[in-house]
């Protein structure tokens, strides 16, 4: 049986399926994200020295910086592979908007990063001596924040498509844009630690993420169209 089904939801779901298959088959990339994050945290712990109090003060910041830095190296590959193998040319022959495809790509990338992170989170929480009452908030903010980082990251990855030294450019492009996410994400966790109200920071974090969710697929689609036209 054959049928034409050009509904956006159909394309969204089928692209998610494709991205999941590809990413879970290159398990080494997933493992490298978590291993890299683990190493960053270990480096901080060793750098701070045997002072539990110091670690308690900067623990939230370390875990956030670790997440941001570990996501960036894998971002380049997510689009570069499909650009080099000609998949984006094929996408340009689809009547489905490229924006829908890129939204699906951001969501799949986010889930692929977040699922292993959530599994590894207990280890990071123990290592950084984070209080138990702060854990649900930390996981919530990092889940929201990582969506924003994935969306911004995909914009950066689209911009460097075909560039020769893209891997060097990518962190320079992305890091300034994720600063608001870092500030409000850490802000929520710090408020919890000080027993203050975290809602205002949380709402700002959600607001930034929603803004990126709306504009990011359009920016990526525009950049990819330019890359295809080169």
């Amino acid at each position: 049986m054959t049928s034409s089904n050009s509904s956006w939801s159909f394309v969204f779901v089928t692209h998610l399926k494709r991205d999941f298959l590809i990413n879970f088959r290159s398990l080494i990339d997933l493992v490298s994200i978590i291993s890299f994050m683990f190493l960053i945290i270990i480096l901080f712990i060793l750098g701070v020295g045997p002072f539990k109090e110091k670690l308690e003060i900067i623990g939230n910041a370390i875990i956030w910086v670790g997440l941001i830095l570990s996501i960036i190296p894998s971002l380049e590959k997510t689009l570069q592979k499909d650009f080099e193998n000609g998949w984006f040319d094929q996408l340009a022959t689809s009547s489905i908007p490229l924006e829908i495809v890129l939204l699906s790509r951001s969501i799949s990338y986010w889930l692929i990063v977040m699922i292993p992170f959530l599994f590894a989170a207990p280890l990071f929480i123990i290592l950084l001596n984070i209080e138990l009452k702060a854990v649900p908030w930390l996981l919530l903010t990092m889940t929201i924040g990582s969506l924003a980082i994935s969306l911004i990251g995909l914009n950066g990855a689209s911009l460097i498509l075909g560039a020769k030294r893209g891997n060097i450019l990518l962190p320079i492009l992305i890091i300034p844009l994720v600063i608001p996410i870092l500030i409000f994400g850490v802000g929520v966790n710090e408020a919890i630690k000080m027993e203050a109200d975290p809602i205002s920071n949380l709402l700002l974090l959600v607001a930034f993420t929603l803004i990126y969710l709306v504009i990011s697929p359009f920016i990526s689609a525009l950049l990819i169209r330019i890359a295809i036209a080169r």
Binding site: N5, N85, G86, W87, D89, S95, V101
Partner: peptide
């Protein structure tokens, strides 16, 4: 074209299926 638009991490069948879905076609 010469790039083929095939993902190295998918099988021949999966690539064809993904391409059909991308076109908005199901088979």
């Amino acid at each position: 074209d010469s790039h083929n638009g095939l993902s190295e991490d998918l099988t021949v069948f999966e690539n064809l299926e993904a391409w059909l879905n991308m076109k908005g076609w199901s088979s």
